Structures are given as C-alpha cells and as structure tokens.
Amino acid sequence: MPDGLDLSAEMLVPRKGRGAISNPAVRFEGTARDSFDDGWGTLADLADLPPLPTPLIRETARSALAWNESPDIGFDRSINPYRGCEHGCVYCYARPSHAYVGYSPGLDFETKLLFKPDLPALLEKELSRPGYVAKPVALGANTDPYQPVERSLAITRQVLEVLERFGHPVTIVTKSAGVLRDLDILRRMAARNLAHVCLSVTTLDSGLARRMEPRAASPLRRLQAMQVLAQAGVPVGVLAAPMIPGLNDAELERILSESCKAGATRAGYVLLRLPLEIRQLFEEWAQAHFPDRAARILALVRETRGGKAYDSRFGVRQTGTGAYADMLARRFQVAAARLGLGGTNARSQPLDCSQFAVPAGAKAEQRQLELL
C-alpha cells in the first residue's frame, strides 16, 4: 500500500467489537481477493452487518513448548494455548502467524480461534523427558493466555497446574483481569519465587482502548488486577506496549506512574511494530478511526524505522532508531528510575529454577531416572 494512504473511505468500515477493518489474503496462497465498490453502494452496506461470530477450532498440538533464539527476548521457550486472539488488538505482532494455518491475519485472527486441549498433557510429557533443563517459560508469548475463551476452556489454568507440580518457573503477560481467576496458583508459585505477571497497558484512555483493543479488559480493570496481584504477593509489572508515535506515546509516564501506584515493581515498553500484514491493517485502522492524523502517525512511525514501516533487525525492532525513538527511550529510563521500577526482562528478575523436579506421580517412562 502506498505511503500516501489513498484508501477509499467506503472500504474502511469498522465492524462492531473488532479491531481489524479487513481480512487480507493469506500470503502463502496463489490467489488474492480485493474489495471494490461496483457503484451500487455494496461496501457502504457493511456498516449494517451484524457482529461477527467467534468460532472455536480444535487444534491437535504437536508440542507444548515453542523455542526461540532471539537475542532481544528475555526467554527461550514459551507456551501458547491458543492461536488467534479475540481481544482484537489491531497492532498485535502475532497476527501474521495466523497465515501459517491458512487464515487471514485480519478479521480471521480475532474471529477464528484455535485451541489446544491436549497442551497440558503434552507439557507434562515434555517436562518429564530425560535431560530437560528448566528455565523460565513465557505463557502466552504469542497470543493472550487469558482471552475471553479461557473462561470456559481453562487450558491456561491446567498448564499452570502442571508447572506448579513440576516446580517450573513461569512468566505471564496479559491484557486481561482474568488472570485473577488463577490467583490461588500464582500466589503459591510466587511464594516459591516461581512466577511473575506483567499486565500490558497501552493507554489509560478507555475510549482509545476500546478502538485499539476492543475485547480486552479496560485500562482501569488492568490496574485493579495489578493491585490485587501485588497485595497477594505476586510480583507484578507493567508493559507499556506498544507505544504509537503521535497517538498514545504521550501517556508513557502516566502509565508507569499509575501502574506503580497499583503495585507494579517492574516496567518495560515496546515501540509499535508493523511487520508483514500488520502494516496494512494498522494503516486501515488509523484512517478509519483517526483520518485527521493518520498520515502524521504513519510518518512518525517511519521516522523511527529508518524511513520504512518496519525494521526487523535484532536490537532495534523493539525500540526503533532515530531522534524520536531515542527520546522515547530516554523518557522511559527517566520515568522508570524516578519510580524505582526495574526491568521486565526475565534475566533481570531471576526466578528460581532449582526447584524443578519431575513429580513422583508422573509415569515412569516419562520422567527422569532418579540417582540412587
């Protein structure tokens, strides 16, 4: 899509309760579809369409643990109970991964959800393998482990039960106050220095949050969740992410301050990332919701990415480059230091890996041989 944002207004019709405006073609397919107005006003009629349903699709997982070697991520393994996320955050960096299963990173990502009911059993099997070495595992690194469907499926809770039995450390990042459902497990694990939780807060403006993250918990509910977690003895942090130049970045200091008041003791931030299809999705969203400043927002984004929409290089993809990005980084450093907030990186907040052990009740063929 050209940088001039020459999008037709008729094509930018938000769907109620959804973040993405469109459903881009799956990039691995040989054909593509494009919407156009045929002169009969058919695209304008989209505004009257009913809300999109959210079908659930069972996925047979091949493994529980996903591994990465990224030098700018503070963990080397993660667990993702779901593919796709009903929160509908328009900027979500996980959207392009939906193409791997044949669905669009657009509306499909937030309406066609894949769930993995066999994940807890697979996890127990993998943790029981001889030679497994425990390090903190990130729960929900790709999509939110506490999105609405978790209320009924409870796969995340079952995963936490396995991790607790094995004495395995875990870190959680979520936008949902639903994490409080598992406060009993998290309190016990935190008492053993096996768990910490980060709440992602993008904005304190409920109206803006409703547009960017239509089905995520309100900013106030996230702050309240921080407070409950902290009071229960669960180490809690805030991730101000993503910071979007010209849209929500002015809120950075206030987000950190309010989170600190709620009990957060650590903080991090990430600059908006627009890889692959996310660029189109975000441009459409900005034009639909903020037509008066969409061009300015995208220009600032390019300013922090060396003139491009995205720079994927390790070391700069999370924070950007240039004067604007440097200023944002400095603002974060000053605010975090003033508030006494440490880093969210697992390496800077070490959890105890020495307690890991295959429980006696595990099947003999799945657990490590004990030294006699």
Results as ranks from 00 to 15, higher is better:
residue 37 D to C: 15
residue 360 A to Q: 09
residue 258 E to A: 03
residue 18 R to S: 09
residue 76 D to T: 14
residue 353 C to F: 08
residue 150 E to Y: 01
residue 211 R to G: 06
residue 348 S to G: 09
residue 338 R to I: 00
residue 345 N to I: 03
residue 188 R to G: 09
residue 182 D to W: 07
residue 320 G to W: 05
residue 80 N to W: 13
residue 45 D to M: 12
residue 266 R to Q: 11
residue 11 M to A: 14
residue 51 P to Q: 05
residue 97 S to P: 02
residue 360 A to F: 08
residue 169 P to E: 02
residue 247 L to R: 11
residue 209 A to K: 03
residue 87 H to S: 14
residue 22 S to F: 03
residue 114 L to W: 01
residue 192 R to Q: 12
residue 220 L to K: 13
residue 365 E to S: 10
residue 279 R to S: 09
residue 312 S to Q: 08
residue 226 M to N: 08
residue 282 F to D: 05
residue 370 E to F: 06
residue 278 I to F: 03
residue 26 V to L: 08
residue 74 G to K: 05
residue 268 G to L: 08
residue 56 L to K: 10
residue 173 V to I: 15
residue 300 L to E: 14
residue 109 F to V: 09
residue 282 F to V: 15
residue 236 V to S: 03
residue 118 D to K: 15
residue 140 G to Q: 01
residue 21 I to S: 12
residue 173 V to W: 02
residue 63 S to R: 15
residue 213 E to T: 06
residue 91 Y to M: 15
residue 194 L to R: 07
residue 158 Q to G: 02
residue 369 L to D: 15
residue 162 V to I: 09
residue 286 A to W: 06
residue 235 P to G: 01
residue 249 D to N: 05
residue 300 L to P: 06
residue 367 R to H: 02
residue 78 S to T: 11
residue 16 K to Y: 04
residue 37 D to Y: 08
residue 87 H to T: 14
residue 124 E to F: 03
residue 57 I to P: 03
residue 122 L to I: 10
residue 327 M to V: 02
residue 175 K to D: 00
residue 243 M to N: 01
residue 148 P to E: 02
residue 135 K to V: 10
residue 106 G to L: 13
residue 151 R to K: 13
residue 144 D to R: 01
residue 89 C to A: 09
residue 140 G to A: 03
residue 130 P to T: 13
residue 113 L to V: 13
residue 69 E to D: 14
residue 334 V to M: 13
residue 305 R to K: 14
residue 366 Q to M: 06
residue 12 L to M: 15
residue 147 Q to G: 00
residue 222 R to C: 11
residue 87 H to W: 14
residue 286 A to C: 11
residue 229 L to D: 02
residue 11 M to E: 15
residue 232 A to I: 05
residue 81 P to K: 01
residue 55 P to K: 08
residue 31 T to W: 15
residue 360 A to C: 11
residue 280 Q to S: 10
residue 138 A to V: 04
residue 170 V to M: 04
residue 49 L to D: 13
residue 221 R to C: 03
residue 104 S to L: 10
residue 99 A to W: 07
residue 312 S to R: 09
residue 292 D to F: 01
residue 63 S to N: 14
residue 204 L to W: 07
residue 354 S to H: 13
residue 35 S to H: 14
residue 283 E to I: 01
residue 211 R to F: 10
residue 368 Q to R: 12
residue 353 C to P: 14
residue 115 F to Q: 08
residue 348 S to M: 10
residue 68 N to A: 04
residue 155 I to T: 01
